[in-house]
Design a protein around this nucleic acid. Structure first.
Length: 146
DNA sequence: TCATTCAGCGTAT
DNA sequence: ATACGCTGAATGA
């Protein structure tokens, strides 16, 4: 398993990948520091620099995700950069409830690559496991939010 | 147009 | 069996 740190100004991210694919991304607050991104890490960095980076081909290792969660993740990955969908929109596609969708998204092990921040509530932005402020920042970064 | 309520469904316990 | 959410629709004022 390989682990890299991406420094992105308003936050830092750790990126883990193994032979099966990317397994986890986690964020934390940043206050300086350094790293040398390469490969996918470089693309993540580019994304944080406000570029439209396409992660749709990135291989993922979803680990212990349930079947339902995988379905939600698959749909979420197809939401284009700069666009949003509602929990209800995904729920209708899967014939389930919006709440169940939120539950599943909360378990997303690889934010950004699976863009769960693009899934918002019908009124407002909804929640985010990495902190609501980060969700808002990502959406603004993509121009999906004023 | 708000503010509450509650239906609905996957998970955790 | 039961309680809880990254919700949303219905209800009531």
């Amino acid at each position: 398993m390989r682990r890299q740190i991406v420094d992105a100004g308003f936050c830092r991210a750790s990126l883990e990948e193994n032979e099966r694919g990317v397994s986890r991304i986690a964020f934390w607050e940043s206050a300086g520091g350094s790293s040398k991104p390469a490969g996918l890490a470089a693309r993540l960095k580019k994304y944080f620099d406000s570029d439209n980076v396409d992660f749709s081909a990135v291989k993922l290792d979803l680990g212990d995700a349930t079947k339902f969660q995988r379905k939600v993740f698959a749909i979420t990955r197809k939401i284009p950069y700069g666009e949003t969908r509602t929990y209800g929109w995904i729920a209708r596609k899967l014939k389930t409830s919006p709440r169940a969708v939120g539950q599943a998204l909360k378990k997303n092990p690889v934010p950004v690559i699976i863009p769960c921040h693009r899934v918002v509530s019908s009124e407002g932005v909804g929640g985010y496991s990495g902190g609501l402020d980060l969700k808002v920042k990502l959406l603004k970064l993509e121009g999906a939010l004023e």
